[in-house]
Nucleic acid binder design. Structure first.
Length: 563
DNA sequence: AGTTTCGGCGCC
DNA sequence: AAAGGGCGCCGAAACT
């Protein structure tokens, strides 16, 4: 049974519904019913719901305990299709898509809401322009057509389906939250920072370190002010350009040690300290708001709470409920495995076809067993390192894995030349600023005069400007990081499906890592489900490939115990 | 006074 | 000689 229906909340609080045929066109009349959640609950055989926006509709369903199997998120798809068409930056709302279809004035997208601690998802957001279901269906039909005009229609269909699945996962995780012990968090803070208040505001330990730094310099220095620290070093006869860790850690000065300690703890204090706890943790759950596809590469971001940057020491506060466990799963060397899959480099596919440590295998083949050098080389190839050991090692890498390096080199060249690059499934890089025919430009902003721009950027004929080199590095990374994000979406979708008959819940996702919260007796099932989802995602995303996608999994009560 | 940018670091 | 990619967060500094 693969019934597909479209649904749209109506302006009067009711709901519009339509059954869709295999061709995606409505079958029969649009129906009106009184209640969104009831309408969906009454149709358990529907396997895919087509709607404008998951973040608009799905939280309302979840609030009444209704889950759906699959959806098609029209606005998420619009964004991906626009991107593929090289028109990223044009408004992506359903109302805008409709206006483009009908030839009316295209409304700008509503401004992005900034983070608001504790806000219950998107329930109270200002309403977007309402699009009646019949119009929504016109946009949907047009999108189906546009899928067919892409380079790989079957991949694009998979991508919009996967992004939609990600939207479901995100909405469910937004609701469930990450189990969080405020008591443990406070213990950690006290252990690291000491008492919270010492008159001035800094916790005790930071105040002590400020004294130590000042004593070392022989004058009052505020370690949290880079300008002050640079000046203090200068007065001590040491020239530093900044106070970055890598720049000052090798300096032989007594202020360095307490200064670095201060920076580390200061970071914890301001980003994940007591006020963070107050703002983001309620009823034993940390509830960030996940935004799938929030980055150009398709990686997720979170809106507030910094959920994707939880410091290792703070992870002690992530604790399973009594009788429950956290299944923490981390994909092993995801990016080079993805590079193997997309480049089809025979040598890299061979080492990525094993579950054993990929960097070790690469180093055995090309770096005389020096794993660290191999890892630096691989990551340098993916990130576009242009100096240091990475560059030297890149030559070794290129000799053994020519197709893999050529793949990212080609992407880099495309980026330098201002061409678009795509992930394996077709997510597309944004056009370079000032490039293209103006379709992707902001209205009212004139394009730079090419000659003037070239002068400004120090462009010399025959050489890439620093700007174009930056675009090259971006594009090089984009194809790998983005294709990895493609794969991760499919993995998440599969895992979500496997968990649906269980009590287990997905509670955390961070690029290549997932956490499932489940009753202890389900843990083994979940571990197996993760492994299966990863392998299935590999086949779905990349087709037939020898590349394996192993996970390291740990069944723990506390996140910090997983490493 | 309010808004934007910068510096530095957290995560992958 | 030479800046490795993607993000979010915060306070301070710089701005309007």
């Amino acid at each position: 049974m693969t019934e597909r229906w479209a649904v749209a909340p109506a302006e009067d609080g009711g709901v519009e519904l339509a059954a869709l045929g295999p061709d995606g066109l409505p079958v029969g009349e649009v129906r009106r019913e009184a209640d969104l959640a009831e309408a969906v609950r009454a149709r358990p055989d529907v396997s895919r719901w087509v709607w404008r926006s998951t973040s608009d509709v799905y939280p309302r369903l979840l609030a009444t305990g209704v889950r759906v199997e699959r959806c098609y998120d029209i606005e998420a798809a619009e964004s991906l299709l626009l991107g593929h068409e090289g028109r990223l930056g044009e408004p992506r709302s359903a109302a805008a898509a409709l206006a483009r279809l009908r030839g009316g004035p295209v409304p700008a997208d509503p401004p992005q809401r900034s983070a608001e601690p504790g806000s219950q998802s998107s329930l109270f957001e200002p309403r977007p322009v309402h699009v009646p279901l019949t119009d929504l269906l016109a946009v949907y039909a047009d999108q189906q057509r546009r899928h067919e005009t892409t380079a790989h229609p079957e991949r694009m269909r998979l991508l919009t389906a996967a992004e939609s699945a990600g939207m479901l996962v995100a909405a469910e995780m937004n609701r469930s939250g990450l189990p969080w012990s405020a008591d443990v968090h406070r213990d950690v803070l006290h252990e690291l920072l000491g008492d919270r208040y010492t008159g001035g505001g800094e916790p005790r330990r930071l105040a002590e370190l400020t004294e130590e730094v000042s004593a070392a310099f022989g004058r009052r220095v505020r370690p949290d002010l880079p300008a002050d620290v640079v000046k203090a070093f200068a007065q001590a006869g040491i020239k530093v350009r900044s106070t970055r860790r890598w720049e000052i850690e090798s300096i032989g000065h007594p202020a360095v040690k307490p200064l670095l300690e201060y920076k580390k703890l200061y970071r914890i204090w301001v980003a994940h300290g007591w006020s963070w706890l107050q703002d983001w943790v309620r009823d034993g759950r940390f509830r960030p708001e996940y935004l799938p596809g929030g980055t150009v590469t398709g990686r997720w971001v979170t809106n507030g709470g910094g959920a994707l940057q939880i410091p290792k020491v703070i992870r002690r506060a992530v604790v399973a409920d009594p009788g429950w466990r956290l299944v923490v799963a981390d994909a092993d060397q995801m990016e080079p495995r993805v590079l193997a899959a997309i480049s089809r480099d025979p040598g890299l596919m061979e080492v990525a076809g094993r579950e054993s440590d990929l960097y070790q295998s690469v180093s055995d083949r090309a770096f005389s067993g020096d794993r660290d050098q191999a890892k630096i080389a691989v990551l340098g190839a993916v990130y576009g390192q242009t100096s240091g050991d990475g560059l030297k090692n890149l030559a070794l890498l290129r000799r053994r894995f020519p197709k893999a390096v050529a793949y990212v080199d080609d992407a880099a060249r495309a980026g330098e030349e201002g061409r678009l690059v795509r992930t394996w499934l077709g997510r597309t890089s944004p056009p370079a600023a000032g490039a293209g025919d103006g379709a992707g430009e902001e209205a009212g902003i004139p394009q730079d005069d090419p000659a003037e721009t070239a002068v400004d950027q120090g462009w010399v004929p025959g050489y890439a400007s620093s700007d174009s080199r930056a675009r090259g590095r971006f594009a090089r990374n984009f194809v790998v990081q983005g294709s990895a994000a493609d794969w991760a979406l499919l993995m998440l979708a599969g895992l979500r499906r496997a968990c649906s008959p269980l009590a287990a819940e997905l509670v955390f996702f961070q690029h290549d890592e997932v956490i499932v919260h489940c009753p202890a007796e389900e843990a083994d099932t979940v571990v197996a489900a993760i492994r299966d989802a990863a392998e299935l995602a590999g086949r779905l995303t990349f087709g037939r490939t020898p590349v394996r996608f192993p996970f390291t999994t740990a069944v723990v009560q506390c996140y910090a115990d997983a490493k």
